[in-house]
Simulated assay, not measured.
Amino acid sequence: MSKDINTSKSAKSSGRGRGSKDALNLVKSIMLGVGTLYLTTRSVVVTVIGAGVAVILLAIILASR
């Protein structure tokens, strides 16, 4: 019978808390949204405005925690 040695270490090895994982997921979502906005509109101006709005909203969300 083989013994799985990675079952307990994989969940605890990152060392990050729940809040930092949530913030990282927010940043990844913003990056995905800005990239999608550019691919959809093909406009740098609209993308820059959308990225600015996304950064402001991210700052508000992180400040409210």
Score class of each variant (00 low, 15 high):
K3R: 07
K3T: 01
D4R: 12
D4E: 12
N6T: 08
T7E: 04
T7D: 02
S8D: 08
S10W: 03
S10F: 10
K12F: 05
K12A: 03
S13K: 10
S14V: 12
G15H: 05
R18A: 14
G19P: 01
S20Q: 14
S20I: 13
S20M: 11
S20N: 09
D22T: 06
D22N: 06
D22H: 09
L26F: 05
V27N: 09
K28T: 07
I30R: 03
L32F: 14
L32G: 07
G33M: 14
G33I: 09
G33H: 12
V34C: 10
T36H: 08
L37N: 07
L37H: 04
Y38I: 06
Y38N: 01
L39A: 13
T40G: 10
T41P: 06
R42P: 00
S43Y: 00
V45M: 06
V48H: 03
I49E: 01
I49M: 07
G50V: 04
G50T: 02
A51G: 12
A51E: 06
G52N: 06
V53Q: 04
A54K: 04
V55K: 13
I56L: 15
I56F: 13
L57P: 00
L57T: 08
L57R: 08
L58S: 10
L58W: 04
A59M: 13
A59R: 08
I60P: 00
I61G: 00
L62N: 03
S64V: 05
R65D: 02
